[in-house]
Simulated assay, not measured.
Amino acid sequence: MQDVKQSETPEQLKLENQVCFPLYSAANEVVRAYRPFLAAHDLSYLQYLVLMVLWDAQELEVKALGQRLNLDSGTLSPLLKRMEAKGFVLRKRGSDDERVRLISTTEKGEQMRDAVADMPKLVACQLGLELDELKQLKRLCEKVLAAS
Rank of each mutant, 00 (worst) to 15 (best):
K135Y: 13
A115L: 14
P120Y: 06
L137W: 07
I103N: 00
L38I: 04
G109F: 01
Y34L: 11
Q58E: 14
G94P: 01
L131H: 12
R82N: 13
V30P: 04
N70L: 13
S44I: 03
S44T: 14
Q136M: 13
V89P: 00
E110Y: 03
V62L: 12
Q136A: 15
D114P: 05
Q47N: 09
S95D: 11
R32G: 11
K92T: 10
E59C: 05
Q47E: 15
K86L: 10
E29K: 15
W55I: 07
E107Y: 13
L49E: 09
L69I: 02
D118K: 13
H41Y: 08
L134N: 08
T75I: 10
L65W: 00
F88C: 06
G94Q: 05
A115C: 12
D56L: 07
S95F: 09
M52Y: 00
W55P: 05
K108E: 07
Q136D: 15
L23Q: 06
D96T: 11
G66W: 00
L127Q: 09
M119E: 08
Y45R: 03
E98F: 03
Q67A: 12
G109C: 01
D42F: 04
S25G: 11
G66F: 01
E61A: 13
R99E: 14
L79D: 00
G74L: 05
A57Q: 11
A124I: 04
E29H: 15
L69D: 01
E98Y: 04
V89H: 01
E110H: 07
D114M: 12
P36K: 13
R99A: 09
V31P: 06
F37K: 10
R101L: 10
L43D: 01
L49Q: 09
S77M: 09
G109E: 01
R32C: 10
K108M: 08
V116S: 04
L71N: 03
L122P: 03
E59G: 06
E110G: 13
N28S: 13
Y45V: 00
A27N: 05
F37G: 03
R91I: 12
V123Y: 02
T75N: 07
A57E: 08
L137P: 05
A26M: 11
L76A: 02
V62E: 11
M119Q: 11
E29Y: 12
L49S: 04
L51C: 14
S25E: 15
A27K: 05
S104I: 04
Y48F: 15
S25A: 15
Q136F: 08
K135W: 14
A117R: 07
Q47P: 05
M112A: 14
L90V: 08
T106M: 02
L54V: 11
L23E: 05
E84D: 06
V89N: 01
F37S: 09
V30F: 09
I103V: 15
N28G: 14
L71I: 04
L90A: 04
